[in-house]
Design a protein around this nucleic acid. Sequence first.
RNA 1: GAGGUUGUAGCUCAGUUGGUUAGAGCGCUAGAUUGUGGUUCUAGAGGUCGUGGGUUCGAAACCCAUCAUCCUCCCCA
Length: 458
Amino acid sequence: MSKPSLPQGTRDFGPEVVRKRQYIFNTIRSVFELYGFQPLETPAMENLETLMGKYGEEGDKLIFRILNNGLENPDKHQQARADFEKVLEGKNVKGLTERALKYDLTIPFARYVAMNHGQLTFPFKRYQIQPVWRADRPQKGRYREFYQCDADIVGSNALLNEVELTNIYNEVFTQLGIADYELRINSRKILTALAEFCGGADKMIDITIAIDKLDKIGLDKVKAELAQRGLNDEQIATIEKYLNISGTNEEKLQLIKSLIGHLETGKKGIEELEFVNRSRSEAGAIGNLIIDFTLARGLNYYTGIIFEAKAPATVKIGSIGGGGRYDDLTGLFGVPNIPGVGISFGVDRIYDVMEELKLFPEGVYTGTQVLFFNMGASESTTAFSAMQSLRKQGVRCELFHEPAKMDKQFKYAEKKNIGFIVIIGSQEVQNNTGVIKNLKTGTQETVSLANLTNKLFI
RNA sequence: GAGGUUGUAGCUCAGUUGGUUAGAGCGCUAGAUUGUGGUUCUAGAGGUCGUGGGUUCGAAACCCAUCAUCCUCCCCA
């Protein structure tokens, strides 16, 4: 028999890791709740057609498909073979894969809103913390199963929502101790305006893909890629001017105005950024918010402000969250005119960042507080009831599972990082007492069992 | 989808130009110690050298294939 193993890109989480992850989840959840968001959960799988075509051509390839059951039924063989031929041609066939694992939380949410818009009170603010799956090749900071934590507001065009979301980022990262994060924002409208100004509105996607790589490959290579994607010299020169915009947020806004402020779309995009930037500084939230005109983001349903939260530059992990506004997400599901804006936290990457920067507080490691020694079959019944009275007080305790040498029980307590032990042996049973020992300081005292619940095990 | 890296004990890793019985540290079990842990000392258990094939008198080492892993590009959280 071969050794057991995990599917590529998936992980088990041991007790310590789960505690740390829960610390992150709890922080994010409590901030979402604080800002008035309501929880939602959707199934692990969706109908394939719900997901297909929503994430671009590349995205479609990364969707995990689920093979239909029952294909072994002889009656279906002929159809299955025909369907399989089509799959080999790169087509999607319902007969073979009707369902797929969800790829993100936004599209299932849009599907939910489209199905329930009659019942929902708008604006509907929901948060969602669930795993998603991508058939990507795993590497550093990239997994095939990972969690997303999303907060979205649908049914409101107000830019106040964007401001709220930037505050959520700030609150969460501050609480987690990732103070040096960067929140980059841009507006898709500015990118649209740039494409228009270059005379090629149809080139928008080519332009954004290329300029998004600026900090990775440098200006020259971006220009080369633009040329390769069919932009002429004049257009590239305009884009270069655009990319060279720098300075404070206010300075950048001034410069972009002179470049594309005369275009209707550009003007709108600039107003959006100005509003968020101003509101945020008026609210006293300082630093960290950086207007970045090279930010593009892949998902093509964004239409307004887009966000990207980046880890401190010292850890090479990059994006730890992202989001943006979409004017008409549910339109894909036949319910038009419901705008929305949302953000997402990438917990798995946040974990890696916190691990690297050693940001987890001591408190997350605590498990059992008190171990009761097992000093024999009859002694342990006294220990057991003493333990139950402590548990009633909310003290986390356990009784060693069998009578054993004290040496062994001590070592167990030490390995599990248990702070206190209580010894109730034959002498103690006789005197109705117990010995409490603090394993960190090495001090111990004898107390009456009635008094045990008054002790603090911290 | 393209390219590269690594695979030896539970874990981290040595292993010389191919040469006898494959090693170390940590961990594990037992004892020194039958009511006081961490330290120390002693002993012990634990290996299809990722898998399959080939070259060779002889392979953990060389060759081919395969699987897994990690990383880079693409794209993304």
